[in-house]
């Protein structure tokens, strides 16, 4: 009502009212405008970088793939130095997925157990220091994990590999021909060790937020500690654990140096996880880069684009789960 009366007196125009509004909010001060511009500009810069990453990688990838004589998705070869070049990502995709799956199978249960240990089992005085140590371990650079994996873990795997070969070799998946343990299984185990801290940290945060009331209610009904966890903690934390695992998966998929130092690569798909061979996207880029021609680099960029898209999907899914959970718990609070 008021606005129409005011609008009646002067000729009604859109610009002055918008300006008045802004004046009312105090946004017309030059300092404010500059500061808003700067901070908004930074935000936009981040979006531009993301778009540029996708754009440039796609552009170089298209350059490479258009000259590929083989099928980019199904060729078992990486030969970019010859004319016409033949390369494909089948082996890399297989290796990346297999090593990540091994890492997840090992890391997720162990991390969840450690998170539970830190929130429910560890002696109260030890919780802080242990959590602190795990935080620090998350900061250990991947190349150090790689060096340790190649020089300490690999020699120690022989016993386990022999054992697996003796008892499970008949499956074909765990057969071993001897030789250094620079195989997918070792890579998976190393990746598991590397992503343990991040999954543990996120899961621990989630378990901490479980309402005390739920746990106390369960305890009051006579539940054992495990029953409290199964009925109150796990249901509350499930989506958080899933997204933590996805974050760890994203890490494992893109890990470069640890794989490049440990794996002895080739361009074949091996049924056995214990025999050396195979490769991952990131490892292949790091190992092939130094001798690659300009075209070879484009081909590597093409494989990097695939990795980029995969990690985007995985991380996007993880974030979507977290966001959904936020709404859910917000509605309950």
């Amino acid at each position: 009502m008021d606005t129409t009366q005011i609008a009646d007196a002067p000729p009604p125009t859109q610009p002055p009212t918008a300006e008045q509004k802004r004046a009312a909010r105090g946004a017309t001060r030059p300092g404010d405008r500059i500061f808003l511009g700067l901070s908004r500009g930074s935000g936009i810069l981040l979006l531009v970088i993301m778009a540029a990453i996708a754009g440039f990688l796609t552009y170089r990838a298209v350059l490479a793939i258009s000259k590929d004589d083989g099928n980019f998705l199904t060729t078992f070869e990486w030969n970019t130095g010859v004319n016409p070049p033949v390369f494909g990502i089948a082996v890399l995709a297989y290796g990346t997925i297999v090593s990540s799956i091994i890492a997840m199978v090992i890391a997720v249960p162990v991390s969840v157990a450690i998170a539970l240990f830190l929130t429910h089992y560890a002696p109260r005085r030890l919780r802080g220091p242990i959590a602190y140590v795990i935080d620090l371990l998350a900061a250990v650079p991947s190349i150090v994990y790689g060096l340790w994996g190649a020089l300490v873990l690999v020699p120690h795997m022989n016993g386990l590999f022999g054992w697996l070969n003796d008892y499970l070799g008949w499956t074909g998946v765990f057969s071993w021909q001897g030789g250094a343990a620079r195989s997918m299984l070792t890579v998976g185990i190393l990746l598991a060790i590397m992503i343990l801290p991040i999954i543990t940290n996120v899961s621990r945060e989630v378990f901490r937020q479980v309402p005390q009331m739920h746990e106390e209610a369960a305890l009051a009904l006579g539940a054992t500690r495990w029953e409290v966890i199964r009925m109150a903690v796990i249901p509350f934390g499930r989506s958080g654990v899933i997204s933590a695992s996805m974050l760890g998966l994203g890490r494992a998929l893109g890990e470069t140096m640890a794989v490049a130092t440990v794996l002895s690569p080739d361009f074949l798909i091996h049924t056995s996880l214990l025999d050396p061979g195979g490769g991952t996207f990131a490892q292949n880029i790091a190992s092939k880069f130094s001798e690659a021609t300009e075209f070879g680099r484009d081909a590597l960029i093409a494989s990097g684009l695939v990795l980029f898209v995969i990690t985007l999907l995985v991380n996007g899914a993880a974030r979507a789960i977290i966001a959904r959970r936020k709404e859910y718990s917000g509605a309950n609070a």
Partner: peptide, 23 residues
Amino acid sequence: AVTFFVDVMTGIPSIVAGLFILS
């Protein structure tokens, strides 16, 4: 959009960032 892409950016493998500058 910025919030979402900051989250997504956190998960970019380091080698992909390298490839971007390389391109």
